[in-house]
C-alpha cells in the first residue's frame, strides 16, 4: 500500500500556477526521488504535503486517509533552505524543535542523547549554534528532522553543505531509517545520488508531473539499444560486418590495452543476438554490454521534451 498519494493537486498563485493536476504515489518503505528543474513546483508540492500551503484542488492521502493537521507529527521535513537559532544552545534548540513535533521534554532528551552519541557530538550540547560550522549545524538539523521517528521523511537537497564523509554518514542514516520502516522523499538535482539510493522517482516540470516510475524500469524503458563493444581485431572488419543491422556511433582505443571500443546503436531491438553473433565472427570480442541511460540523461531529455 502507498503511504502517500497525491491526487490531481492544483495550486495557483496570483501570478502563476505552481502545480497543475499533479498526481503521484509514494510506496511505503521506498526512497522516492522528487526531481525537476528550479521553479518546477517541487517546493510547492512539498509544502502541500506538509500542510504549509493548502491545495486549490485535489487531495493528499496519507496512510490511507485524507491528510489532517495531526499527520504532520508523523512527517519530518528538512527544507533546502534551513537554519537554526544562532544564539540558542544546541541542546535546548533540539528540544524545542522536538517538542513542536509532539515529543515530551523528557522523551526528547532521551532520544537526543542517543543521536548525539551516534553522531559523536555529545560535547556540542551546551554550545551555541553560532559557534558551529555549517556542516556541524546541518548534522544537528538532521537530528531534529528525524527525532520524532516520522513515518514520512522529506529531504530537500539533504547533502548540500556536507563533505563527502559526512554526506556518506547521512546517506547510511537515511538508509537505516528506511530499513526501520520510514518512507523517504528526496528532492534533489543531484542525479548520481538519485541513481544510488532512490527506487522511484517523479519528475516535475513546469508545474506538471511529466515522468513517474521506478528507477530501474525507467532507465531500461529509455534505453536506446546502445551497446558498448570491446574487441581486438580490425576496426574496418568490425564496422563492415555490423553495417546492415547497427549504426556505429564512434570508436576509440582503450587506454593501455590493445583493444578497441565502439559504441553502436542496434536498429532493431530484436536483432541483438544476431549482432552479437555477427560481431563475434568478425573480431575477437572482449565485452558486449548495453549502455543504460543515466538519470541525468533522462532528466535532461525529459525536461527538453525529447523523450
Amino acid at each position: 500500500m502507498d503511504l502517500l498519494k497525491i491526487e490531481n493537486v492544483t495550486k495557483r498563485y496570483s501570478a502563476h500556477t505552481a502545480l497543475s493536476d499533479v498526481s503521484m504515489s509514494v510506496p511505503r518503505g521506498s526512497i522516492y526521488g522528487l526531481l525537476g528543474p528550479n521553479g518546477a513546483g517541487k517546493t510547492t508540492l512539498i509544502r502541500v504535503i506538509n500542510r504549509i500551503t493548502l491545495p486549490d484542488a485535489g487531495r493528499v492521502i496519507f496512510d490511507g486517509r485524507e491528510i489532517t493537521d495531526q499527520d504532520i507529527y508523523h512527517i519530518g521535513y528538512l527544507p533546502e533552505e534551513r537554519g537554526l537559532y544562532k544564539k540558542m544552545k544546541v541542546g535546548e534548540q533540539a528540544i524545542f524543535f522536538a517538542r513542536l513535533k509532539g515529543l515530551s521534554r523528557r522523551e526528547a532528551i532521551v532520544r537526543l542523547k542517543e543521536w548525539f552519541v551516534r553522531f559523536g557530538i555529545e560535547s556540542w550540547w551546551n554550545r551555541k549554534v553560532e559557534d558551529l560550522s555549517k556542516g556541524m549545524a546541518q548534522k544537528v538539523q538532521f537530528i531534529t528532522t528525524v527525532l520524532h521517528e516520522p513515518k514520512l521523511l522529506i529531504f530537500d537537497e539533504p547533502f548540500s553543505g556536507f563533505d563527502p564523509i559526512n554526506a556518506n554518514l547521512l546517506k547510511q542514516e537515511i538508509l537505516r531509517l528506511r530499513d526501520k520502516g520510514a518512507t523517504v522523499i528526496f528532492s534533489t538535482h543531484n542525479m548520481s545520488s538519485v541513481e544510488e539510493i532512490c527506487d522511484h522517482i517523479t519528475l516535475v516540470n513546469k508545474s506538471r508531473n511529466i515522468l513517474s516510475g521506478s528507477v530501474d524500469e525507467l532507465r531500461h524503458r529509455f534505453g536506446e539499444n546502445v551497446f558498448e563493444v570491446t574487441y581486438s581485431g580490425e576496426q574496418a572488419t568490425f564496422e563492415q560486418s555490423l553495417e546492415p543491422m547497427a549504426d556505429i556511433l564512434g570508436t576509440s582505443s582503450v587506454a593501455d590495452t590493445p583493444y578497441l571500443c565502439s559504441r553502436i546503436r542496434i536498429k532493431d531491438a530484436a536483432s541483438v543476438r544476431d549482432s552479437i553473433a555477427t560481431a563475434n565472427n568478425a573480431v575477437e570480442l572482449r565485452s558486449f554490454r548495453e549502455v543504460i541511460p543515466s538519470m541525468n540523461d533522462i532528466f535532461i531529455r525529459a525536461v527538453e521534451g525529447t523523450l
Binding site: Y77, R82, L84, Y85
Partner: peptide, 11 residues
C-alpha cells in the same frame, strides 16, 4: 536564517 522554513513544517 531560514529557521522559519523549518518551523512552518511544525506550526
Amino acid at each position: 536564517s531560514r529557521v522559519l522554513d523549518v518551523l512552518v513544517s511544525s506550526v
